[in-house]
Nucleic acid binder design. Sequence first.
DNA 1: AATCATTATGAAATCGTTTACAAAAATCTC
DNA 2: GAGATTTTTGTAAACGATTTCATAATGATT
Lengths: 334, 334
Amino acid sequence: MASIKEVARAAGVSTATVSRVLANSPHVRPALRERVLKAIKELEYRPNLIARSLRAQQTTTIGLIVSDIRNPFFTAISRAVEDTAYEEGYSLILCNTDEDPKKESIYLNVMRDANVAGVILSPTGPTAAGLRELETGFAVVVIDRSIPDADVDMVLLDNVDSAYRLTRHLLENGYQRIAAICGERSTTGRERCAGYEQALRAYGLLPTAELVRFVPPQIEAGYAAALRLLDLPEPPEALLTTNSLLAAGALEAIRERGLRIPDEIALVTFDETTWASLVQPPITLIEQPTYEIGKTATELLLQRVAEPERPTRRVILKGRLLVRGSSAPRVRCG
Amino acid sequence: MASIKEVARAAGVSTATVSRVLANSPHVRPALRERVLKAIKELEYRPNLIARSLRAQQTTTIGLIVSDIRNPFFTAISRAVEDTAYEEGYSLILCNTDEDPKKESIYLNVMRDANVAGVILSPTGPTAAGLRELETGFAVVVIDRSIPDADVDMVLLDNVDSAYRLTRHLLENGYQRIAAICGERSTTGRERCAGYEQALRAYGLLPTAELVRFVPPQIEAGYAAALRLLDLPEPPEALLTTNSLLAAGALEAIRERGLRIPDEIALVTFDETTWASLVQPPITLIEQPTYEIGKTATELLLQRVAEPERPTRRVILKGRLLVRGSSAPRVRCG
DNA sequence: AATCATTATGAAATCGTTTACAAAAATCTC
DNA sequence: GAGATTTTTGTAAACGATTTCATAATGATT
């Protein structure tokens, strides 16, 4: 309600002095500072952020652009981002794009219009390509997906290695015919697929195209892909999915076909969720350090806001293999 | 980059005319309108929302204040709110308060400072009490929790009746000694508890304090409460929890005690989640129309923004009982 | 064609800050 | 205590839109 003008009048000073007190400038005599502080308190003055932003040509707001906040991975990230942003006095604007490049582009424009200080996003291919050239006008940090030769800060998982370890876990437990259901439209799915294939080769097996599916990262897609795999003339002994949505769909399919885990089929995936430990047997998976990812991304972003010219960084975090369920190796029945 | 001034200059008109074109005012001749539109396109002009907000003393931003976005109920709500807000040209600011009244108050102030058009929130008791008097300066819609005599728009579930139906489902399947683990610090938990007690009485049973627990709405709290209940000298035959986090904790406890569902113990809850249908046997529950809640809340909010003096409304939505698992009634073994 | 009513346009104020610059006050130096 | 130096303060111009009010242009009416 009260503006800086009224504070100035109440304290018998100019608005400039009030502003200086607000900014903790050293160039204001203690006596005046006291008077201003008193006036601020009495009038319950709070600076108008809009006015401040207009003047500064920048807000204390950051954007988080994800495909769908209901994906547990992004839910966890968003919590970390909000926590970290809040600590630094920033607010968080949330956007869902459903992996739609058009929506991504629209939201990036919204962000520009809103004068955000920066954006954390997980772009699809086309948008990622655009990011390489596009002068956005705000800081950008990419998470979850790598953009090969873009000069942008990134926070990523060691996807290839994580998928390798996850696949190896299956192989070491006696599974050989392993199928992979991967999220399409992102480097992440491809990288994880690469790790899966590397592991197969390392164990003397040949990846076959028949057992690898790229689908939209949704429960229904995972369900459909898994059904098709299970109905193959020679069905796989194990399923690897690259995120929790696909895993949920795959598990549904397994249930529908009445297959017993882990005897008749195994299921491993990425991303820890509430349900992964609640189903029986619990699911072995690669846990991503989601909170760390969100926190790191926010820190990188705010550092770049403070210092736009600093060299870009690419932080790679390690996934953690959580082995669950009976650890007894599988008895091959072939 | 380009400002309204440059557009005006390029079109050979005043900024006022450009502004009128932007606002679709009828008071501008077609010839001029064309020129302005052309200049806008050529300069790729986009109005600066900050400047607009400063002038209008209001942004096109709304706030969503929840305890924790990672609670699947709020995750789903947030998606609906964002979708609906976006359709109307509004952006969404997300805040997590962890049920902490202090944080709620801080975030409400942040919202005021940010000049949001309105806020959707799910307040704890103290904040709810404050809302009754507090002149916030922006529109407010309360979700999930009722504030008895406040003059605020609300979107709620028929908690008492839903809990009644959920409990009745247990009773009709032969369960008699039913315990309830309820979320504390909200009217919602209390209302659901009331419905539970009503159902018991309707079936000639007396609610006992020993079987009702109020705990923070977290997995760990649900786990701990469930363990204590299961370890009672005379343990319950069924557990009812009032949200999915408590249910997850309770299920963990059930697993830890090695009890078989539904023969040795039953579990029912509120809130549909991915895992509720994936665990075996799947969980019977009351599904809240989360998307509808979020959408309705946003609509109410934006209507109030447009027309601040309209009478407040209280929308009550119905929960849906999803019966799952073997529907064979329980054979009492007592 | 002159008058009046109506519509279209622009100049300038405004929203609430910050900050460059100038002026005033305090401090220092001899 | 006068002058030079430093520090403190205030004035006023931004930032980029919208809108009031006055004026200019148009159209209608005789």
